[in-house]
Design a protein around this nucleic acid. Structure first.
Lengths: 230, 230
DNA sequence: TCCAAAATTAGAGTAGATGAAAATTTGGTG
DNA sequence: CACCAAATTTTCATCTACTCTAATTTTGGA
């Protein structure tokens, strides 16, 4: 009773389309595959494809769309006394250790990333998804802090933390795509993550301040200065 | 000798196309105007339009594309002893005072913003431009700090500061679009900008940390705590 | 068995974009 | 001035994503 034959067939059809699409995309790149080809491969009409997926990009993003709301969830479920940054850092480092795909650390994340970076359309779609994540996180932060609508801090914190993880993820992806071994990448990313979240928590400070002396090369000033909390 | 007749005509044609396009977009919205209409209005063929502008979006962004590199320039030309954040804050506040369009504070920026927010295609194009700005700023920061390619701090700082200004600008635009008077918006934005750049410089800290007491509402802790520098 | 709703398909059309080959315009030269 | 070669524009043809409407088929249940 839970799911009639009709519902099941629909789900199967949708899945078949998505699978065939992904297969073709992997083999030949997103832009080099037409929706018509996907339809043929899935043995349906083009209209049926667009019936299940609003755009061609959705064929690719289908699953990853579920990750969209996750940072917001992490914040909502954080422990008492845990700061927003602490919660998100914990989540990020956990994903790093377990090589979870929610931050692009999964095993096949490199081909995924290459597919995206090779296609302007997909890149654009990923950006939109990123904005959606920001919005969701900002809303969660507004709830969490009871901020009034004109307080921009939820939006600022949301964009800062999500762009931080985005930069970290992108860097990891770049190195994975270059064929580097995860045994080397993982620890490096962790190190960079500590720095990155440090910048977030304790601020950028006088990063890049020009002084007479040559302390510019790797400013240890702000990033490394532990001046508050924990 | 500086500019032959040929060059001048090209420039004029390009300008005529862009002007006609902008006029139509303003009047009827970006998505409701076809390239064919723009071509007819400018009295050229569709292919000529695409000869001058790679995409329809470029018809709209033409000029604003020049703003793309500006934050990077500001950093490159900052004074000795001035930190990156300080330089960009100075530039931002200056634009705020003078209502300069480079941060969307110009007089017609609201219609511009409305046009963008009403069109998914334009919104997407703006996001791409934002990423390009980030890349340019990150490169400038890499130069400025002599960072090696695997140091992510330039990228982190770049994305944080540019997204900060983006949030501030977006908020101003929203209120301008709502018809609010600049006399009210301007000072508010300045106030929010102080908070925002403060978060950047001194860090998010334990923003949103849940404690037993009810100090969550507007956490004065991190944002307001002057714990380092200047 | 048959009906009504749901799912799929067919068909026509729009818009952005690309490519190549004609046609026109332009700058310079004999 | 006449003419050539290069640059510019136009014309024409084509592709692809996507939309809409009207058949057509499939399905669940009476």
């Amino acid at each position: 009773m839970d799911e009639g034959l009709r519902e099941r067939k629909k789900r199967e059809t949708r899945q078949r389309i998505a699978d065939m699409a992904m297969g073709l995309f992997m083999a030949r790149g997103f832009d080099n595959v037409t929706v018509a080809e996907v339809a043929r491969a899935a043995d349906v009409s083009v209209n049926t494809v667009f019936n299940y997926f609003k755009t061609k990009e959705d064929l690719f993003l289908d699953r990853s769309a579920m990750v969209e709301v996750m940072p917001a969830e992490v914040v909502r479920e954080r422990a008492t006394g845990e700061s927003v940054i602490a919660a998100l850092r914990r989540d990020f480092l956990d994903a790093l250790d377990t090589r979870h795909w929610r931050y692009g650390f999964g095993d096949g994340s490199d081909v995924f990333a290459k597919l995206v970076s090779d296609s302007p359309a997909l890149t654009s779609a990923m950006l939109q998804m990123h904005m959606e994540r920001e919005r969701a996180l900002a809303e969660a932060l507004m709830e969490a802090t009871d901020a009034d609508p004109d307080d921009l801090r939820p939006w600022l914190v949301a964009t800062q933390v999500l762009n931080t993880t985005r930069v970290l993820t992108a860097h990891a992806a770049r190195r994975m795509m270059a064929g580097e071994d995860w045994a080397r990448i993982g620890p490096d990313i962790r190190e960079q993550a500590e720095i990155a979240f440090g910048l977030l928590e304790r601020g950028v400070g006088d990063y890049g301040a020009r002084s007479g002396a040559g302390q510019d090369e790797k400013p240890p000033s702000s990033a490394a200065r532990p001046n508050s909390s924990t």
